[in-house]
Design a protein around this nucleic acid. Structure first.
Lengths: 181, 181
DNA sequence: CTTAGTTGTTATCGACTGATAACTAAGCAC
DNA sequence: GTGCTTAGTTATCAGTCGATAACAACTAAG
C-alpha cells in the first residue's frame, strides 16, 4: 500500500484534529508530539517541523476550538438569535467534549504568558460574538458565560456529555432542573 | 547555620503549600517534583518519598484546596448563611489564586481516572456544603456554582484577582456590573 | 555512651521527549 | 525522463524527570 501524500495544508488540518484529541486528554504539558503523530499516522519529527514547535501546535488547536464554537453559535443564531438558543448549541458541543476540554486546559495553563494571551484573545472573541449575535447586555452575557463555564467543567469531569461516569448523587441533583436535559 | 529539622507532619504541610504554588503555575504534568522541592527548600527525592509519588502529592494538594474553600465558606456562613455571602467569600479567595487555579487544573485533568475521582469527590463535597449552609435549592445552587466557575476561569486568566493583566475591553465590560467590584 | 528511630541527603538510573539533521521518494513541469 | 519542489522518513541527541538505594546526621531513651 502506497502512502497517500497530502498537501501541507491538508496535513495541518488533520494534525490539528489529532492534537485536539490528544491535548484534551492530557493537557499541554502532559501530551507528547509523538502521541499526536501516532493518531495522525505520521512521524513525530514531521509534526514538529510542520508547526515549528509543540507550543505552536497547541496554539493552533486552541484557535481551532474557538473557531468551531464561534461557527456553531453563528449557525444557531441564524436559526434563533437568543441566548437560550446559543446555550442549547453549546450543550450540543458536549458531544465533542474535546473542543471544550482543550479550552479548559488552556484557561488553566494561562499562567504561561503565551498561552494566556491566546486564551484571552479567544475568550474575548467569543464574548463579542455572543453580544453581536444576541444583542444581550453585559449582565445577561456574564450569566451566559457563567453557565457555559459550569457546563464546560462538568463536561470535563465526565458528569455531562457522552460516556458519563456513574453519576454521584450531587451530580444528578445539580443537573435535575437543567434546561437542556 | 544548622538546618531546622521538622517533623514529618510539619514537612507534609509545608510541602503541600509549596506544591500548591507550583501546580497552580504549571499544572500536574507541567510541574516537576524538583520545583516543589526547591520552593520548600528540601531535596527532590525527599518529596517523592514523603508522598510516595508525584500523583499522591497532587491529590493531597487538591484535597487541601477543597478544605480551604470549605473552611472559608463555613466561616462566611457563620456570619450570614446566604449564597450572596458565600459568593463574596469565594471572590475573596481570588487573593489566593493558586487555590482556585489548582482545582481548575484538576477539573481539566479529570480524564485521568484517579484525578477524575478525586476532583468529583471534591466538587460533590463543596456542593453539599453550600446546600447545607445556605439551604438553597438545587436550581439556585447551580447558578451559584456557575458563577463560581466563571470567577475561577477569569481568575486563572488573570482577568480577576491580584496582579491582573492589562484588561482588554471585553473584560472590563464583562466585569462592569460585577457585584463584588 | 550507645542504640534506635526519624529526618534528610547525595548518587544514580532508565525512560522519555522535543528538536535537529540528513536522507528518501512522490509528483509536477517541460 | 530529467530535474525541481514538496512531503515525509530514519537516526540521533541533549536535556529532563520521577523514582530508588545507600548513606549521613540529628534526637532521645535507657
Amino acid at each position: 500500500m502506497t502512502r497517500t501524500r497530502l498537501t501541507a495544508q491538508e496535513r495541518h488540518v488533520q494534525l490539528v484534529a489529532a492534537a485536539l484529541q490528544a491535548f484534551a486528554q492530557g493537557g499541554y504539558a502532559g501530551t507528547t508530539t509523538d502521541q499526536v503523530a501516532r493518531i495522525a499516522g505520521v512521524s513525530q519529527p514531521y509534526v514538529v517541523r510542520l508547526f515549528g514547535s509543540k507550543q505552536e501546535l497547541f496554539l493552533a488547536t486552541l484557535r481551532y476550538a474557538g473557531d468551531r464554537i464561534e461557527a456553531k453559535w453563528r449557525a444557531a443564531a441564524a436559526d434563533d438569535p437568543t441566548l437560550e438558543r446559543l446555550g442549547a448549541a453549546y450543550e450540543d458541543l458536549l458531544a465533542e467534549r474535546e473542543l471544550l476540554v482543550v479550552l479548559l486546559h488552556g484557561y488553566a495553563a494561562a499562567g504561561d504568558p503565551v498561552i494566556g494571551d491566546a486564551v484571552r484573545d479567544c475568550y474575548g472573541r467569543l464574548y463579542w460574538v455572543v453580544r453581536e449575535l444576541t444583542g444581550a447586555d453585559p449582565d445577561q452575557t456574564r450569566g451566559f458565560f457563567a453557565m457555559g463555564m459550569l457546563i464546560t467543567v462538568l463536561g470535563s469531569m465526565r458528569v455531562l456529555g457522552p460516556d458519563p461516569v456513574p453519576l454521584p448523587p450531587w451530580a444528578t441533583e445539580l443537573l435535575s432542573a437543567f434546561p437542556g436535559d
